[in-house]
Write a protein that binds this DNA or RNA. Sequence first.
DNA 1: AAATACTGTAACAATTGTGTAACACGGGTA
DNA 2: TACCCGTGTTACACAATTGTTACAGTATTT
Lengths: 227, 227
Amino acid sequence: MQIRLLVVEDEQPIREMLKMVLSYQNMIIIEAETGNAALEILKTEPVDLMLLDWMLPDISGIEIAKRIKSNSNLSKIPVIMLTAKGEEDDKIRGLECGADDYVTKPFSPKELTARIKAVLRRVNPSKDDKEISFENIRLDPKSHAVTVSDQNVKLGPLEFKLLHFFLTHQNKVYSREQLLDNVWGTNVFVEERTVDVHIRRLRKAISVNGADQFIKTIRGAGYIFAS
Amino acid sequence: MQIRLLVVEDEQPIREMLKMVLSYQNMIIIEAETGNAALEILKTEPVDLMLLDWMLPDISGIEIAKRIKSNSNLSKIPVIMLTAKGEEDDKIRGLECGADDYVTKPFSPKELTARIKAVLRRVNPSKDDKEISFENIRLDPKSHAVTVSDQNVKLGPLEFKLLHFFLTHQNKVYSREQLLDNVWGTNVFVEERTVDVHIRRLRKAISVNGADQFIKTIRGAGYIFAS
DNA sequence: AAATACTGTAACAATTGTGTAACACGGGTA
DNA sequence: TACCCGTGTTACACAATTGTTACAGTATTT
Protein backbone atom coordinates (compact mmCIF):
# COMPACT_ATOMS: atom_id res chain seq x y z
CA MET A 1 0.00 0.00 0.00
CA GLN A 2 1.17 3.47 -0.80
CA ILE A 3 2.03 5.67 2.11
CA ARG A 4 0.90 9.27 1.95
CA LEU A 5 3.44 11.48 3.62
CA LEU A 6 3.03 15.14 4.45
CA VAL A 7 6.37 16.91 4.60
CA VAL A 8 6.34 20.24 6.39
CA GLU A 9 9.64 21.95 5.83
CA ASP A 10 10.48 25.48 4.78
CA GLU A 11 13.89 24.89 3.31
CA GLN A 12 13.50 23.96 -0.29
CA PRO A 13 16.68 21.89 -0.70
CA ILE A 14 15.77 19.69 2.19
CA ARG A 15 12.30 19.22 0.77
CA GLU A 16 13.82 18.22 -2.52
CA MET A 17 16.07 15.76 -0.83
CA LEU A 18 13.23 14.23 1.14
CA LYS A 19 11.16 13.99 -1.99
CA MET A 20 13.83 12.14 -3.86
CA VAL A 21 14.61 9.78 -1.06
CA LEU A 22 11.07 9.00 -0.09
CA SER A 23 9.47 8.78 -3.48
CA TYR A 24 12.18 6.32 -4.28
CA GLN A 25 10.69 4.29 -1.44
CA ASN A 26 7.37 4.40 -3.22
CA MET A 27 5.82 6.92 -0.91
CA ILE A 28 3.57 9.74 -2.02
CA ILE A 29 4.96 13.07 -0.89
CA ILE A 30 2.75 16.03 -0.17
CA GLU A 31 4.66 19.21 0.55
CA ALA A 32 3.95 22.17 2.75
CA GLU A 33 6.28 25.07 3.34
CA THR A 34 4.56 26.54 6.32
CA GLY A 35 2.60 25.39 9.31
CA ASN A 36 -0.57 27.03 8.10
CA ALA A 37 -0.26 25.40 4.72
CA ALA A 38 0.13 22.08 6.46
CA LEU A 39 -2.98 22.58 8.53
CA GLU A 40 -4.91 23.48 5.40
CA ILE A 41 -3.77 20.35 3.63
CA LEU A 42 -4.76 18.23 6.58
CA LYS A 43 -8.32 19.47 6.22
CA THR A 44 -8.70 18.01 2.77
CA GLU A 45 -6.03 15.43 2.06
CA PRO A 46 -5.73 12.02 3.66
CA VAL A 47 -2.32 11.69 5.25
CA ASP A 48 -0.71 8.65 6.81
CA LEU A 49 2.24 10.30 8.48
CA MET A 50 3.76 13.73 8.93
CA LEU A 51 7.37 14.78 8.77
CA LEU A 52 7.49 18.00 10.67
CA ASP A 53 10.35 20.43 10.79
CA TRP A 54 10.98 21.93 14.17
CA MET A 55 11.65 25.41 12.92
CA LEU A 56 9.08 26.89 10.61
CA PRO A 57 8.48 30.48 9.52
CA ASP A 58 5.01 30.81 10.98
CA ILE A 59 3.77 28.24 13.47
CA SER A 60 6.43 26.18 15.18
CA GLY A 61 6.56 22.48 14.58
CA ILE A 62 5.85 21.75 18.19
CA GLU A 63 2.75 23.88 18.07
CA ILE A 64 1.50 22.05 15.01
CA ALA A 65 2.14 18.73 16.62
CA LYS A 66 0.18 19.82 19.67
CA ARG A 67 -2.75 20.98 17.61
CA ILE A 68 -2.83 17.79 15.65
CA LYS A 69 -2.65 15.62 18.68
CA SER A 70 -5.44 17.53 20.37
CA ASN A 71 -7.70 17.30 17.33
CA SER A 72 -9.54 14.04 17.64
CA ASN A 73 -9.84 13.83 13.90
CA LEU A 74 -6.16 13.99 13.28
CA SER A 75 -4.69 12.80 16.52
CA LYS A 76 -3.97 9.38 15.20
CA ILE A 77 -1.70 10.65 12.46
CA PRO A 78 1.80 9.82 13.57
CA VAL A 79 4.32 12.64 13.58
CA ILE A 80 8.06 12.50 13.14
CA MET A 81 9.95 15.62 14.07
CA LEU A 82 12.93 16.86 12.13
CA THR A 83 15.35 18.70 14.33
CA ALA A 84 18.67 20.25 13.54
CA LYS A 85 21.72 19.11 15.42
CA GLY A 86 22.35 21.22 18.47
CA GLU A 87 18.72 21.98 19.11
CA GLU A 88 18.67 18.62 20.77
CA ASP A 89 18.50 19.65 24.37
CA ASP A 90 15.39 21.72 23.90
CA LYS A 91 13.87 18.90 22.03
CA ILE A 92 14.18 16.43 24.78
CA ARG A 93 12.15 18.80 26.87
CA GLY A 94 9.63 19.14 24.09
CA LEU A 95 8.93 15.49 23.80
CA GLU A 96 5.60 15.87 25.47
CA CYS A 97 4.12 17.54 22.44
CA GLY A 98 3.20 14.08 21.24
CA ALA A 99 5.62 13.41 18.45
CA ASP A 100 6.11 9.73 17.82
CA ASP A 101 9.75 9.93 16.92
CA TYR A 102 12.58 12.32 16.17
CA VAL A 103 15.16 12.46 13.48
CA THR A 104 18.01 14.90 13.68
CA LYS A 105 19.49 16.48 10.62
CA PRO A 106 21.58 15.48 8.96
CA PHE A 107 20.10 12.03 8.67
CA SER A 108 20.78 9.14 6.37
CA PRO A 109 18.06 8.06 3.95
CA LYS A 110 18.20 4.61 5.41
CA GLU A 111 17.65 5.86 8.90
CA LEU A 112 14.78 8.06 7.90
CA THR A 113 12.93 5.40 6.00
CA ALA A 114 13.60 2.91 8.73
CA ARG A 115 12.09 5.24 11.29
CA ILE A 116 9.10 6.01 9.15
CA LYS A 117 8.39 2.38 8.69
CA ALA A 118 8.99 1.66 12.35
CA VAL A 119 6.54 4.32 13.42
CA LEU A 120 3.90 3.13 11.00
CA ARG A 121 4.37 -0.38 12.20
CA ARG A 122 4.12 0.64 15.81
CA VAL A 123 1.03 2.73 15.25
CA ASN A 124 -0.62 0.31 12.89
CA PRO A 125 -0.30 -3.07 14.50
CA SER A 126 -1.03 -6.08 12.39
CA LYS A 127 -4.57 -5.98 11.21
CA ASP A 128 -6.14 -8.66 9.17
CA ASP A 129 -4.28 -11.88 9.05
CA LYS A 130 -7.28 -13.94 9.89
CA GLU A 131 -7.99 -17.00 7.91
CA ILE A 132 -10.81 -16.66 5.43
CA SER A 133 -12.79 -19.47 3.97
CA PHE A 134 -15.60 -19.53 1.52
CA GLU A 135 -17.27 -22.60 0.09
CA ASN A 136 -14.38 -24.83 -0.90
CA ILE A 137 -11.75 -22.12 -0.79
CA ARG A 138 -9.57 -21.42 2.20
CA LEU A 139 -6.99 -18.67 2.39
CA ASP A 140 -4.62 -18.10 5.27
CA PRO A 141 -2.81 -14.78 5.12
CA LYS A 142 -0.41 -15.81 7.87
CA SER A 143 1.10 -18.66 6.00
CA HIS A 144 0.12 -17.46 2.53
CA ALA A 145 -1.52 -20.79 1.98
CA VAL A 146 -4.50 -21.35 -0.26
CA THR A 147 -6.44 -24.54 -0.60
CA VAL A 148 -9.29 -25.40 -2.90
CA SER A 149 -11.25 -28.46 -1.85
CA ASP A 150 -8.39 -29.16 0.54
CA GLN A 151 -5.92 -29.27 -2.29
CA ASN A 152 -2.97 -26.94 -1.94
CA VAL A 153 -2.91 -24.35 -4.67
CA LYS A 154 0.08 -22.30 -5.65
CA LEU A 155 -0.64 -18.68 -6.44
CA GLY A 156 1.68 -15.92 -7.48
CA PRO A 157 1.78 -12.83 -5.26
CA LEU A 158 -0.69 -10.92 -7.38
CA GLU A 159 -3.10 -13.77 -7.75
CA PHE A 160 -2.94 -14.18 -4.01
CA LYS A 161 -3.74 -10.54 -3.42
CA LEU A 162 -6.49 -10.65 -5.97
CA LEU A 163 -8.13 -13.65 -4.38
CA HIS A 164 -7.74 -12.10 -0.97
CA PHE A 165 -9.42 -8.98 -2.20
CA PHE A 166 -12.31 -10.88 -3.70
CA LEU A 167 -12.79 -12.96 -0.61
CA THR A 168 -13.00 -9.83 1.50
CA HIS A 169 -15.16 -7.99 -1.01
CA GLN A 170 -17.79 -10.39 -2.17
CA ASN A 171 -21.03 -9.66 -3.98
CA LYS A 172 -20.00 -6.38 -5.43
CA VAL A 173 -18.95 -5.58 -8.96
CA TYR A 174 -15.51 -4.05 -9.33
CA SER A 175 -14.37 -2.36 -12.48
CA ARG A 176 -10.97 -3.10 -13.88
CA GLU A 177 -9.85 0.28 -12.70
CA GLN A 178 -11.02 -0.36 -9.16
CA LEU A 179 -9.29 -3.69 -9.11
CA LEU A 180 -6.09 -2.07 -10.26
CA ASP A 181 -6.36 0.47 -7.48
CA ASN A 182 -7.14 -2.03 -4.80
CA VAL A 183 -4.94 -4.92 -5.74
CA TRP A 184 -2.10 -3.45 -7.75
CA GLY A 185 -2.04 -0.24 -5.76
CA THR A 186 -2.82 3.30 -6.71
CA ASN A 187 -0.84 5.10 -9.34
CA VAL A 188 0.66 2.12 -11.06
CA PHE A 189 0.30 2.33 -14.78
CA VAL A 190 -0.85 -0.93 -16.25
CA GLU A 191 -3.29 -1.63 -19.02
CA GLU A 192 -6.77 -2.46 -17.87
CA ARG A 193 -6.77 -5.55 -19.98
CA THR A 194 -4.03 -6.87 -17.75
CA VAL A 195 -6.73 -7.43 -15.17
CA ASP A 196 -8.44 -9.81 -17.54
CA VAL A 197 -5.32 -11.85 -17.82
CA HIS A 198 -4.93 -12.14 -14.08
CA ILE A 199 -8.58 -12.96 -13.64
CA ARG A 200 -8.02 -15.71 -16.13
CA ARG A 201 -5.02 -17.00 -14.20
CA LEU A 202 -6.82 -16.89 -10.90
CA ARG A 203 -9.87 -18.60 -12.35
CA LYS A 204 -7.69 -21.36 -13.64
CA ALA A 205 -5.99 -21.74 -10.30
CA ILE A 206 -9.12 -22.01 -8.21
CA SER A 207 -11.23 -23.99 -10.62
CA VAL A 208 -12.10 -27.51 -9.59
CA ASN A 209 -12.18 -29.20 -12.95
CA GLY A 210 -11.90 -26.58 -15.56
CA ALA A 211 -14.85 -24.69 -14.14
CA ASP A 212 -14.55 -21.69 -11.88
CA GLN A 213 -17.75 -21.06 -10.03
CA PHE A 214 -17.18 -17.78 -8.29
CA ILE A 215 -15.58 -15.07 -10.38
CA LYS A 216 -18.21 -13.79 -12.72
CA THR A 217 -17.82 -11.37 -15.58
CA ILE A 218 -20.23 -8.47 -15.71
CA ARG A 219 -19.97 -7.36 -19.25
CA GLY A 220 -19.24 -3.67 -19.57
CA ALA A 221 -18.79 -3.28 -15.84
CA GLY A 222 -16.12 -5.55 -14.44
CA TYR A 223 -15.96 -8.64 -12.29
CA ILE A 224 -17.76 -9.86 -9.25
CA PHE A 225 -17.01 -12.57 -6.75
CA ALA A 226 -20.13 -14.37 -5.61
CA SER A 227 -21.49 -17.84 -5.20
CA MET B 1 3.68 -7.13 36.92
CA GLN B 2 6.10 -4.39 37.81
CA ILE B 3 9.17 -4.15 35.74
CA ARG B 4 12.40 -3.36 37.52
CA LEU B 5 14.58 -1.18 35.37
CA LEU B 6 18.17 -0.27 36.04
CA VAL B 7 19.10 3.02 34.40
CA VAL B 8 22.81 3.64 34.05
CA GLU B 9 23.34 7.19 32.95
CA ASP B 10 25.64 9.90 34.22
CA GLU B 11 23.74 12.94 33.04
CA GLN B 12 21.25 13.92 35.65
CA PRO B 13 18.67 15.64 33.39
CA ILE B 14 18.38 12.61 31.20
CA ARG B 15 17.98 10.38 34.23
CA GLU B 16 15.20 12.65 35.41
CA MET B 17 13.51 12.48 32.09
CA LEU B 18 13.74 8.72 31.95
CA LYS B 19 12.39 8.48 35.45
CA MET B 20 9.36 10.55 34.64
CA VAL B 21 8.61 8.78 31.43
CA LEU B 22 9.14 5.28 32.68
CA SER B 23 7.58 5.52 36.09
CA TYR B 24 4.55 6.82 34.29
CA GLN B 25 4.54 3.44 32.57
CA ASN B 26 4.43 1.79 35.94
CA MET B 27 8.01 0.68 35.96
CA ILE B 28 10.31 0.73 38.95
CA ILE B 29 13.40 2.77 38.21
CA ILE B 30 16.71 2.04 39.86
CA GLU B 31 19.38 4.60 39.07
CA ALA B 32 23.11 4.34 38.73
CA GLU B 33 25.43 7.13 37.72
CA THR B 34 28.46 5.07 37.00
CA GLY B 35 29.34 1.68 35.66
CA ASN B 36 30.78 0.53 38.94
CA ALA B 37 27.68 1.59 40.79
CA ALA B 38 25.61 -0.38 38.31
CA LEU B 39 27.66 -3.50 38.82
CA GLU B 40 27.29 -3.14 42.56
CA ILE B 41 23.56 -2.83 42.29
CA LEU B 42 23.37 -5.88 40.10
CA LYS B 43 24.93 -7.93 42.87
CA THR B 44 22.09 -7.30 45.23
CA GLU B 45 19.04 -6.04 43.38
CA PRO B 46 16.89 -8.04 41.04
CA VAL B 47 16.71 -6.28 37.70
CA ASP B 48 14.54 -7.09 34.70
CA LEU B 49 16.18 -4.85 32.17
CA MET B 50 19.04 -2.39 31.89
CA LEU B 51 19.17 0.93 30.12
CA LEU B 52 22.83 1.55 29.56
CA ASP B 53 24.40 4.77 28.41
CA TRP B 54 27.20 4.35 25.98
CA MET B 55 29.41 6.99 27.51
CA LEU B 56 30.03 6.72 31.19
CA PRO B 57 32.65 8.35 33.38
CA ASP B 58 34.29 5.12 34.50
CA ILE B 59 33.56 1.90 32.68
CA SER B 60 32.15 2.23 29.20
CA GLY B 61 28.69 0.97 28.51
CA ILE B 62 29.91 -1.60 26.06
CA GLU B 63 32.29 -2.97 28.64
CA ILE B 64 29.50 -3.32 31.15
CA ALA B 65 27.31 -5.04 28.62
CA LYS B 66 30.06 -7.48 27.88
CA ARG B 67 30.66 -8.27 31.52
CA ILE B 68 27.00 -8.84 32.10
CA LYS B 69 26.58 -11.03 29.12
CA SER B 70 29.55 -13.13 30.09
CA ASN B 71 28.36 -13.56 33.65
CA SER B 72 26.09 -16.54 33.63
CA ASN B 73 24.14 -15.14 36.54
CA LEU B 74 23.29 -11.95 34.79
CA SER B 75 23.57 -12.84 31.15
CA LYS B 76 19.88 -13.13 30.68
CA ILE B 77 19.21 -9.56 31.71
CA PRO B 78 18.36 -7.72 28.53
CA VAL B 79 20.28 -4.56 27.79
CA ILE B 80 19.24 -1.54 25.80
CA MET B 81 22.01 0.84 24.85
CA LEU B 82 21.58 4.58 24.85
CA THR B 83 23.79 6.23 22.29
CA ALA B 84 24.18 9.82 21.28
CA LYS B 85 23.58 10.75 17.70
CA GLY B 86 26.68 10.63 15.59
CA GLU B 87 28.24 7.83 17.52
CA GLU B 88 25.86 5.65 15.63
CA ASP B 89 28.18 3.93 13.25
CA ASP B 90 30.28 2.52 16.01
CA LYS B 91 27.20 1.71 17.95
CA ILE B 92 25.69 -0.53 15.39
CA ARG B 93 28.60 -2.75 16.10
CA GLY B 94 27.57 -2.45 19.69
CA LEU B 95 24.83 -4.94 19.15
CA GLU B 96 27.49 -7.52 18.79
CA CYS B 97 28.59 -6.93 22.34
CA GLY B 98 25.31 -8.52 23.34
CA ALA B 99 22.99 -5.57 23.70
CA ASP B 100 19.46 -6.45 22.73
CA ASP B 101 18.62 -3.11 21.22
CA TYR B 102 19.83 0.41 21.19
CA VAL B 103 18.19 3.79 21.15
CA THR B 104 19.75 7.00 19.98
CA LYS B 105 19.30 10.24 21.86
CA PRO B 106 17.21 12.14 21.54
CA PHE B 107 14.43 9.63 21.61
CA SER B 108 10.73 9.93 22.12
CA PRO B 109 9.13 8.44 25.22
CA LYS B 110 6.90 6.37 23.04
CA GLU B 111 9.79 4.95 21.16
CA LEU B 112 11.66 4.11 24.29
CA THR B 113 8.80 2.38 26.04
CA ALA B 114 7.93 0.56 22.87
CA ARG B 115 11.44 -0.74 22.62
CA ILE B 116 11.60 -1.74 26.23
CA LYS B 117 8.43 -3.71 25.92
CA ALA B 118 9.54 -5.23 22.67
CA VAL B 119 12.78 -6.39 24.18
CA LEU B 120 11.06 -7.82 27.22
CA ARG B 121 8.60 -9.59 25.02
CA ARG B 122 11.35 -10.93 22.86
CA VAL B 123 13.50 -12.03 25.76
CA ASN B 124 10.98 -12.99 28.34
CA PRO B 125 8.82 -15.73 26.96
CA SER B 126 9.97 -17.93 29.76
CA LYS B 127 10.44 -20.68 27.28
CA ASP B 128 13.32 -18.60 26.11
CA ASP B 129 15.84 -20.83 27.75
CA LYS B 130 13.89 -24.00 27.34
CA GLU B 131 15.11 -26.50 24.89
CA ILE B 132 13.14 -26.55 21.69
CA SER B 133 12.93 -29.42 19.32
CA PHE B 134 11.11 -29.85 16.09
CA GLU B 135 11.31 -32.85 13.82
CA ASN B 136 15.00 -33.62 13.60
CA ILE B 137 16.17 -30.28 14.93
CA ARG B 138 17.01 -29.62 18.54
CA LEU B 139 18.09 -26.28 19.91
CA ASP B 140 19.19 -25.53 23.43
CA PRO B 141 19.27 -21.83 24.17
CA LYS B 142 21.17 -22.34 27.37
CA SER B 143 24.18 -23.95 25.81
CA HIS B 144 23.70 -22.46 22.36
CA ALA B 145 23.87 -25.96 21.01
CA VAL B 146 22.04 -27.16 17.95
CA THR B 147 21.73 -30.65 16.62
CA VAL B 148 20.20 -31.88 13.41
CA SER B 149 19.45 -35.58 13.34
CA ASP B 150 21.60 -35.82 16.46
CA GLN B 151 24.55 -34.39 14.62
CA ASN B 152 26.09 -31.35 16.22
CA VAL B 153 25.82 -28.30 14.05
CA LYS B 154 27.85 -25.17 14.43
CA LEU B 155 25.95 -21.95 13.95
CA GLY B 156 27.11 -18.37 14.17
CA PRO B 157 25.31 -16.14 16.66
CA LEU B 158 23.02 -14.69 14.03
CA GLU B 159 22.17 -17.99 12.47
CA PHE B 160 21.40 -19.26 15.93
CA LYS B 161 19.06 -16.39 16.65
CA LEU B 162 17.43 -16.81 13.29
CA LEU B 163 16.80 -20.49 13.82
CA HIS B 164 15.56 -19.80 17.30
CA PHE B 165 13.17 -17.24 15.97
CA PHE B 166 11.85 -19.59 13.34
CA LEU B 167 11.42 -22.41 15.80
CA THR B 168 9.37 -20.17 18.05
CA HIS B 169 7.42 -18.62 15.20
CA GLN B 170 6.42 -21.39 12.90
CA ASN B 171 3.80 -21.40 10.17
CA LYS B 172 3.78 -17.71 9.57
CA VAL B 173 5.38 -15.79 6.77
CA TYR B 174 7.87 -13.15 7.83
CA SER B 175 9.07 -10.47 5.50
CA ARG B 176 12.72 -9.63 5.32
CA GLU B 177 11.96 -6.46 7.20
CA GLN B 178 10.22 -8.32 9.99
CA LEU B 179 13.08 -10.73 10.27
CA LEU B 180 15.52 -7.86 10.54
CA ASP B 181 13.43 -6.35 13.31
CA ASN B 182 13.05 -9.55 15.22
CA VAL B 183 16.40 -11.17 14.79
CA TRP B 184 18.86 -8.39 14.12
CA GLY B 185 17.09 -5.94 16.38
CA THR B 186 15.08 -2.86 15.70
CA ASN B 187 16.64 0.05 13.92
CA VAL B 188 19.75 -1.65 12.71
CA PHE B 189 20.28 -0.51 9.17
CA VAL B 190 21.05 -3.55 7.15
CA GLU B 191 20.12 -4.32 3.57
CA GLU B 192 17.14 -6.59 3.22
CA ARG B 193 19.03 -8.86 0.89
CA THR B 194 21.33 -9.67 3.76
CA VAL B 195 18.48 -11.73 5.12
CA ASP B 196 18.63 -13.92 2.05
CA VAL B 197 22.25 -14.60 2.66
CA HIS B 198 21.67 -15.64 6.22
CA ILE B 199 18.71 -17.76 5.23
CA ARG B 200 21.00 -19.44 2.79
CA ARG B 201 23.61 -20.05 5.46
CA LEU B 202 21.07 -21.38 7.89
CA ARG B 203 19.48 -23.60 5.27
CA LYS B 204 22.84 -25.04 4.46
CA ALA B 205 23.57 -25.64 8.11
CA ILE B 206 20.37 -27.45 8.94
CA SER B 207 19.97 -29.39 5.73
CA VAL B 208 20.34 -33.12 5.99
CA ASN B 209 21.87 -33.91 2.64
CA GLY B 210 21.77 -30.80 0.62
CA ALA B 211 18.05 -30.43 1.15
CA ASP B 212 16.49 -28.14 3.71
CA GLN B 213 12.95 -29.15 4.41
CA PHE B 214 11.64 -26.41 6.61
CA ILE B 215 12.52 -22.91 5.55
CA LYS B 216 10.35 -22.09 2.62
CA THR B 217 10.45 -19.07 0.39
CA ILE B 218 7.21 -17.28 -0.25
CA ARG B 219 8.00 -15.28 -3.30
CA GLY B 220 7.17 -11.64 -2.91
CA ALA B 221 6.40 -12.06 0.77
CA GLY B 222 9.30 -13.48 2.71
CA TYR B 223 10.14 -16.75 4.42
CA ILE B 224 8.20 -19.22 6.45
CA PHE B 225 9.27 -22.02 8.71
CA ALA B 226 6.94 -24.97 8.42
CA SER B 227 7.03 -28.68 7.90
C1' DA C 1 -26.67 -10.22 -40.91
C1' DA C 2 -23.14 -7.07 -40.42
C1' DA C 3 -20.85 -4.14 -37.68
C1' DT C 4 -19.39 -3.09 -33.29
C1' DA C 5 -17.90 -3.69 -28.61
C1' DC C 6 -16.31 -6.46 -25.19
C1' DT C 7 -14.00 -10.57 -23.14
C1' DG C 8 -11.16 -15.10 -23.17
C1' DT C 9 -6.99 -16.98 -24.17
C1' DA C 10 -2.38 -18.08 -25.55
C1' DA C 11 2.13 -16.72 -26.53
C1' DC C 12 5.73 -13.82 -25.89
C1' DA C 13 8.49 -10.06 -23.71
C1' DA C 14 9.75 -7.42 -19.85
C1' DT C 15 10.33 -7.07 -15.23
C1' DT C 16 11.16 -8.54 -10.79
C1' DG C 17 12.60 -11.70 -7.03
C1' DT C 18 15.64 -15.10 -5.31
C1' DG C 19 19.83 -18.27 -4.85
C1' DT C 20 24.42 -18.17 -4.62
C1' DA C 21 29.24 -17.21 -4.63
C1' DA C 22 32.75 -14.05 -3.95
C1' DC C 23 34.59 -10.45 -1.68
C1' DA C 24 35.27 -6.70 1.99
C1' DC C 25 35.57 -5.39 6.50
C1' DG C 26 36.25 -5.34 11.51
C1' DG C 27 37.18 -7.63 15.81
C1' DG C 28 39.30 -10.96 18.18
C1' DT C 29 43.12 -14.10 18.74
C1' DA C 30 47.38 -16.72 18.19
C1' DT D 1 51.68 -8.73 12.89
C1' DA D 2 48.97 -12.04 10.32
C1' DC D 3 45.17 -14.90 10.48
C1' DC D 4 40.48 -16.56 11.34
C1' DC D 5 35.61 -15.92 12.00
C1' DG D 6 31.30 -13.83 11.54
C1' DT D 7 28.83 -10.56 9.12
C1' DG D 8 27.24 -7.44 5.39
C1' DT D 9 27.33 -6.16 0.56
C1' DT D 10 27.31 -6.84 -4.12
C1' DA D 11 27.13 -8.96 -8.74
C1' DC D 12 25.52 -12.35 -11.59
C1' DA D 13 22.63 -16.12 -13.13
C1' DC D 14 18.52 -18.07 -13.15
C1' DA D 15 13.62 -18.67 -12.28
C1' DA D 16 9.12 -16.96 -11.51
C1' DT D 17 5.88 -13.53 -12.10
C1' DT D 18 3.73 -10.00 -14.50
C1' DG D 19 2.44 -7.02 -18.56
C1' DT D 20 1.38 -6.65 -23.39
C1' DT D 21 -0.38 -7.88 -27.52
C1' DA D 22 -2.82 -10.30 -31.11
C1' DC D 23 -6.35 -13.01 -32.33
C1' DA D 24 -10.41 -15.76 -31.50
C1' DG D 25 -14.76 -15.95 -29.61
C1' DT D 26 -19.08 -14.10 -27.79
C1' DA D 27 -22.48 -10.77 -26.89
C1' DT D 28 -24.82 -6.40 -28.28
C1' DT D 29 -26.36 -2.99 -31.40
C1' DT D 30 -27.70 -1.35 -35.85
